[in-house]
Computed example of a mutant assay.
Amino acid sequence: MSADEKILELVNVSKTFDRLQVLTDCNLRVNKGQTIVLIGPSGSGKSTLLRCINLLEPPTSGGVLFEGREITDDPRGADRLRRNIGMVFQNFELFQHLSAIENIMLAPMKVLGMSRKDAHDVGLELLRKVHIPERADHFPDELSGGQQQRVAIARALAMRPKIMLYDEPTSALDPEMIREVLDVMSDLSQEGMTSVCVTHEMGFARRAADRIIFMEEGRILENAPTEAFFGGDANARAQKFLSQILH
């Protein structure tokens, strides 16, 4: 899945909120086509790190490089970055007054200048990709949680992103709906979509990830290939976390 071409890099990224230090000197390289999974206990800074990647939370210090360009203090670069990064949140964030396909069509029409017909065609294609084309005209409150999250994934894909970010995308779902969302994410990884995912779903991490990042107290304590991480080569703190979450 992974390649050697670097697409994104975080360099010594730190983040404070008032006097609270949330991230400390985080370094991360993401290669084109890689799937990176961030794991760690609650409050370890995983979601904040994810939001720093697309500058929803600007780092207090350190840099974000996208395709080799430092964009941390470049508003035009930040805008370009966000157009190229799709983000999927915990709670779907769909517009309740729009149908599934209208949620997908909105950004391509407004941001990319796509015609309504072309946006509709793209929306249908993406709903097929996430396996719910028959739900195109349904509104969010007529969809299950898993279906809503798959619409949210399709909406992010409609902007033709180079990277997908997932912030605990299955945490708000009932157990029977989790697999259908993870399957879509795995399919995208297999197709070569570059992805960074915060999740507690270790089965997905084993199956789809190229590298596992373990965080605690705002620091990256482990950055290892998936096979090595789950094979017992992780540091002692990461292994303790794994033993707790897997049993």
Rank of each mutant, 00 (worst) to 15 (best):
G68F: 04
G68C: 03
R69C: 09
R69V: 11
E70F: 12
E70P: 09
T72P: 13
T72L: 14
D73K: 11
D73M: 13
D73Q: 08
D74R: 03
D74V: 10
D74T: 09
P75W: 05
G77L: 14
A78L: 11
L81Y: 00
L81W: 04
L81R: 06
I85V: 15
I85H: 12
I85C: 05
I85W: 01
G86P: 01
M87I: 15
V88C: 11
V88E: 01
F89A: 11
Q90L: 06
Q90I: 00
E93R: 15
E93F: 14
E93L: 10
L94C: 13
F95D: 08
F95G: 14
F95A: 12
Q96L: 09
Q96S: 13
L98K: 13
L98W: 15
S99W: 07
S99V: 08
E102M: 15
E102R: 06
N103F: 04
N103R: 12
N103S: 14
A107Q: 03
A107Y: 01
A107C: 13
M109C: 03
K110R: 10
L112W: 01
M114G: 02
M114Q: 10
S115R: 04
S115W: 05
S115H: 04
R116M: 09
R116L: 15
K117Y: 05
D118N: 06
A119S: 06
D121Y: 05
V122P: 00
L124R: 03
L124K: 04
L124C: 11
E125K: 05
E125Q: 05
K129Q: 11
V130L: 10
V130T: 13
V130F: 07
V130N: 02
I132K: 07
E134R: 12
E134N: 11
D137K: 09
H138W: 10
H138V: 15
H138Q: 12
F139P: 03
P140E: 02
D141R: 08
D141W: 11
D141E: 08
D141V: 07
E142K: 14
L143R: 04
S144L: 09
G145F: 02
Q147C: 07
Q148N: 14
Q149G: 03
Q149V: 05
R150S: 05
V151C: 09
V151R: 05
A156R: 00
L157E: 00
A158S: 04
K162R: 06
M164V: 11
M164S: 04
L165T: 06
D167P: 09
D167C: 15
E168T: 11
S171K: 07
P175T: 15
M177K: 14
I178G: 00
E180R: 07
L182Q: 09
D183K: 06
V184L: 14
M185I: 11
S186I: 14
D187K: 15
D187L: 14
L188C: 07
Q190D: 12
E191L: 04
G192C: 02
G192W: 04
G192I: 02
M193V: 01
V196N: 03
V196S: 08
C197K: 07
V198H: 06
V198S: 10
H200T: 14
H200S: 13
E201F: 01
E201W: 07
M202V: 02
A205Q: 10
R206Y: 08
R206E: 14
A209R: 05
R211H: 13
R211Q: 05
R211Y: 12
I212G: 07
I212C: 10
I212R: 05
I213S: 01
I213N: 03
I213T: 04
F214A: 06
